[in-house]
């Protein structure tokens, strides 16, 4: 609840940054060869409060755009938590044609619409580009009787209700979709799966460490510190390929013979009605920042999977993902 307090304060900040930004980069606007460049401070909107994975992405992209000189009039991250990104999406939607607004979104944008929680559809926005995938990893407590992915599968096959999962912040998240996929692959009854939602991924993680929940499904970002300290153990990753770092020794579900690949993609959308040259500007900007070695190093360090798509590709990708989500979530709505 408290994080909501931070939101509207940022809006006020935009105006003050505008002044500062203009003073700091006097010549940059014209230095860009593109025919359009943001003449107002760039506002990177995100539908969660400070601290979550989406918020981190927004801060990263804002920092890289700034360092790359793509925000000549300044930039700011603006947190608009509430209603599962609904408040932030409504905000972006209410500023058609304003190309200085970018929003970082994930799969919740699709599932909220599919589950009937939000009337806002992905098709109303201008897709800008796909950044990367965050992986969904399955982990158990250090003392859990479940030691390997195979243990988990055996238990689920025997009795789908014998394992409890933490799916972080609710129905329709990628965490939840991963569990649904697993149930489907091992042939367990989806309606018997015990999926528990918490206020934050950290709450789910601590409940798993304390032995109250059997399996936690979330991102390496939330899990790594606890795996490092020996409180949790990874059992399998829902990614297409193995990644490095702490996850190097962790098998993917695919290696184990179960086709569970759930990319928690992060992409950028903008308000509706952008001009082609504005879309081209952001296409170029995103391509440039994601091509830097710093960006790649950051992905590597945070166990993120590179997944770059242009604005055109992102549009098609969103459509195919929407279809896939509809099939999975459709089976649980009544």
């Amino acid at each position: 609840m408290t994080s909501t307090f931070a939101i509207t304060r940022r809006k006020a900040l935009v105006s003050s940054l505008a002044v500062a930004g203009l003073a700091a980069f006097p010549g940059l606007g014209s230095a860009q060869s593109s025919s359009w460049a943001p003449d107002k401070p760039v506002e990177v909107v995100v539908g969660v409060g400070p601290g979550g994975a989406n918020d981190r992405t927004a801060r990263d992209i804002e920092r890289f755009l700034k360092d790359g000189g793509f925000t000549p009039a300044g930039s700011v991250v603006s947190n608009k938590p509430g209603g599962g990104h609904a408040v932030a999406l409504a905000y972006t939607l209410a500023h058609p044609g304003e190309a200085n607004i970018l929003q970082v979104v994930g799969g919740v944008m699709l599932s909220n619409n599919i589950l009937g929680r939000s009337p806002i559809s992905f098709a109303q926005f201008t897709p800008i580009g796909t950044l990367f995938d965050e992986q969904m990893v399955f982990a158990v407590g250090a003392n859990s009787p479940i030691k390997t992915a195979q243990d988990l599968v055996d238990k689920l096959k025997q009795d789908p209700a014998s394992v409890s999962f933490s799916i972080s912040t609710g129905i329709g998240t990628t965490n939840h979709i991963s569990v649904l996929q697993l149930a489907k692959q091992v042939g367990a009854d989806i309606k018997k799966i015990k999926a528990v939602s918490f206020n934050s991924s950290t709450e789910g993680v601590t409940a798993t460490i304390g032995g109250h929940i059997d399996v936690v499904v979330t991102t390496p970002f939330a899990l790594n510190p606890f795996v490092e300290s020996g409180d949790l153990k990874y059992i399998a990753a829902a990614s297409a390929e193995r990644s490095g770092g702490l996850l190097a020794q962790v098998p993917t579900w695919r290696e184990l013979g179960y086709d569970i690949v759930v990319p928690a993609w992060r992409l950028i959308v903008a308000p509706p009605d952008l001009k082609p040259e504005q879309i081209a500007y952001w296409d170029k900007a995103i391509a440039a920042v994601t091509d830097t070695s710093e960006w790649k190093a950051m992905l590597e360090k945070e166990s993120l999977v590179p997944h770059r798509l242009t604005s055109v590709e992102t549009k098609a990708y969103l459509e195919s993902e929407d279809k896939r989500y509809r099939e999975l979530l459709g089976s649980i709505s009544q």
């Binding site: 609840m1 408290t2 307090f5 400070p50 601290g51 950290t202 709450e203």
Partner: peptide, 15 residues
């Protein structure tokens, strides 16, 4: 644990 237990600690975590 990085676990905020209510109003103020959540804001501090954000900070």
């Amino acid at each position: 644990l990085g676990l905020p237990s209510g109003g103020t600690t959540a804001v501090l975590l954000g900070a």
